[in-house]
Computed example of a mutant assay.
Amino acid sequence: MPFSDLPDTLVKNVASFLPPRDLCRFEMVDRWTHQLDTDELWKTICENRWKQWPRYRLTPEQLEWIRENLPSMNWKRRFVWVEDDATRTRITWEEMEAHTWYFNFTPEAGGRGSDTLQTCRFSQGFLFLSQYLPMPYRLEVVDGVQYLRIYHFPPHRVDRLPNAEWLITNINVTFVSCGENEALAFRERGFQGNHVERGHITT
């Protein structure tokens, strides 16, 4: 039996075991595979891929956001869009001011784990941090790398964590983004021993 004569359901069942890169190659084999409806396969890939990324996990709220903001995209194109968005290392000031942030000093700068861990916020061009006056901040790019500049302190490099949250650091301090209803899993640079669940800091 020619491959193209196999039932679509059987072919899609076989294709469901393919990782994203191989599924893309499969869809390019010929016109028939290119026209095969694989949208549900891509949705399953998205669900599995993003379940460890709190900011992109397919919760009801995220599904609603996708319907409103990416309505014309199929699940394959949504997968590509999120993969690009989750790995970019340049944050916008709108994101800076919309995200929940945790702050701590490194052990070398006096950080004491959960004793010095605190939440902070960026708003209207200022960093608001407990026990400090509001400090002006700005974002800049130097030699292709983005930095956060706060007052006269050494520049803070902007990066991403494996779970797609933002990590902003210099030699003395660390800022980590975290969803409002998510646990803070970061355990480096003096964050060891911290456990933050739904906004509550515990030891």
Rank of each mutant, 00 (worst) to 15 (best):
D84V: 12
R88C: 15
F79G: 05
W75L: 05
K43R: 14
L36V: 08
R78N: 02
Y102R: 05
R112I: 00
T59R: 01
F103R: 00
D84I: 13
I91C: 12
Q35W: 06
A86N: 07
Y102M: 15
E27S: 15
E27K: 15
E83C: 15
W65P: 00
T116Q: 06
W75S: 07
A98K: 10
A86H: 09
T59M: 00
R88M: 14
E95A: 14
L117P: 03
Q62L: 00
T59D: 06
N74M: 02
P60H: 07
W65V: 08
T92A: 11
R31D: 07
M73D: 08
A98D: 13
D115H: 06
E64I: 04
V82E: 06
L36P: 05
E64H: 07
Q62A: 09
M73I: 02
W32A: 14
D30T: 02
E94C: 12
M28E: 15
D85W: 08
E68K: 10
P54Y: 02
P71S: 01
K43M: 11
F26C: 03
P60I: 00
F103Q: 06
W42S: 01
D30E: 14
W81R: 11
D30Q: 06
I91Y: 12
T89P: 03
Y102K: 06
P107V: 03
T44G: 03
W32D: 02
Q35C: 08
G113T: 05
T38H: 08
Q52L: 08
I91N: 12
V82W: 04
E83W: 12
W75G: 00
Y56C: 01
S72D: 13
N104I: 07
K43G: 02
F103P: 06
E97W: 07
Y56A: 02
R112E: 14
E83V: 07
E27R: 15
E61S: 10
F105V: 01
R31C: 11
K76E: 07
T59P: 04
P71F: 00
T92V: 06
L58V: 01
D115F: 08
T89R: 15
W42H: 03
P71C: 00
R57D: 11
L36R: 10
I45Q: 09
S72M: 11
F26P: 08
E64M: 04
I91R: 05
A98Y: 07
R67I: 01
F26Q: 08
W50S: 00
W75Q: 03
W32Y: 13
T106V: 03
W93G: 04
T100W: 13
P71V: 02
L36E: 09
E68Q: 13
N74Y: 04
R55M: 10
V29Q: 04
E27Y: 03
F105Q: 13
T106N: 12
I91W: 12
K76L: 06
